[in-house]
């Protein structure tokens, strides 16, 4: 182990589209999935991450390096997370929430979930269906009835920005 020899260990992570990334073990083990692999002795070669693509993995590694450089100060970590997520669009956030779930990184998972909710808050029902790829299983009559029942919640909805 690197900790015993005094030199930091570097892990090599492989995305599902075969991109390779080097990352300090101390940052990578923020992921419980990676930590378990390291503890099980899989860290010798390349760690394959079958559910994460290269673009998303690059972003997650940026986060791992950034957050692990901050000392134990929850306020500072929170403001780093806010800044890190501030310019991400819905598709990127959706990829990140899946990656955070697969990598078992609860702090990133919580932050990305909250950010997605913030993006969704004032969106229309149609926008949500399109973005999440959800099929509308209401009949036109049922849909009209359920909309009528909850009419007041349709006040203040933003105009769709994805058309």
């Amino acid at each position: 182990m690197a900790a015993e020899t005094g030199t930091p260990t570097t892990l090599t992570l492989k995305s599902n589209d075969d991109e390779l990334f080097s990352v300090a073990e101390s940052a990578a083990i923020l992921s419980v999935t990676i930590r378990n692999m390291v503890e099980d002795g899989c860290a010798g070669g390349v760690i394959p991450l079958d559910n994460v693509d290269g673009k998303t993995l690059a972003s997650v590694i940026t986060y791992m390096n950034g957050i692990s450089a901050i000392p134990a100060d929850e306020e500072k970590k929170k403001s780093y997370r806010d800044k890190f997520l501030s310019d991400k669009d819905f598709e990127t956030l959706a990829d990140m929430v899946l990656a955070a779930n697969y990598l078992n990184m609860s702090c990133l998972m919580d932050a990305v979930s909250a950010k997605i909710a913030q993006v969704m808050e004032k969106k229309s029902v149609g926008w949500v269906r399109r973005k999440f790829g959800i099929e509308n299983d209401y009949t036109p009559e049922e849909e009209a009835a359920v909309k009528e029942e909850h009419k007041w919640t349709f006040e203040g909805v933003e105009t769709d920005d994805d058309n």
């Binding site: 979930s113 509308n136 299983d137 849909e143």
Partner: peptide, 26 residues
């Protein structure tokens, strides 16, 4: 997107948005 992740995201929303999103699907 697995449903448990969708649920996790939805718990962050205010009540008004959640009631509106009851119209998304059954």
């Amino acid at each position: 997107v697995p449903e448990e992740i969708i649920e996790e995201i939805l718990t962050n929303l205010p009540v008004k948005s959640l009631i509106r999103f009851k119209c998304v699907s059954k």
